[in-house]
Write a protein that binds this DNA or RNA. Sequence first.
DNA 1: AATGTGCGCAACCGCCTTACC
DNA 2: CGGTAAGGCGGTTGCGCACAT
Length: 248
Amino acid sequence: MVRSPFFDKNGIKKGAWSDEEDNKLRAYIQRYGHPNWRELPKFAGLSRCGKSCRLRWMNYLRPNVKHGNFTKEEEDVITRVHNKLGNKWSKMAAMLPGRSDNEIKNYWHTHLKDRVRKEQTVLKNEQSKNLDEPHDVNPKRWPIEKENPNLINAEQEVEILSVVLSSSSSTSESSPTSLSVSDYEVPCDVTPQLSDSFGNIWFDEPCLPDEGSIMSSSDYMFSSLGLSDELVSQTSSEDYIIDDLVLW
DNA sequence: AATGTGCGCAACCGCCTTACC
DNA sequence: CGGTAAGGCGGTTGCGCACAT
């Protein structure tokens, strides 16, 4: 399934990792951490380059890393974020505790890409049929927006989400604003709704980050998005409906 | 049973960003 | 401010496996 092991001209081992190598890397990092990836293989007794060690740890050996089938909710998050941001795998990984960017990327290419493309083609055809009859793209949203003129449009949503996702520090002075990432291209009847099983992935399942501390999936999401505790605590649960990815 | 073909996924590669001097 | 090293990210590749012929 993977490249057969071999040594390059510098004596660096490439290709599939053996159990022995995995054990060495795991044992070393659990004991000493990974302050310097480049030096790590030397001290851990591995004939690998630092990059290879980092990749193996991040994608496979980390204690909290998940393998196997993606849930419907995870698929939905990937689809929605991809619609807004494109191939930002690390951003998606930050929102899906236990999933690596590599795994998300692979899953997108092998499972989701074609499916989403088909869904959007179907949608486009339907929309072109109904061109003469303008109607709400997302009927669920419009009543809310009409009630609240302060809500933002689709372009602003992408911009703000990009900032939120890339931000490493909180914007504590920001007032609670509804940040919707609802998908205008894939309506709610095409993509499954997250809110139905919202608790499953964001709140029920504890998550173990690298540091070893336990935090809830929702804490993990907010911390990975750079949202401060105070800001999160101001937030009522109704405010971050993942159905539309309203973050706060 | 043998061979061909496509898929899935771990790992590699190169570029970009960040940190440090 | 520029140079360098290290980390991180996204695109691509190689190969084992399952399924089709």
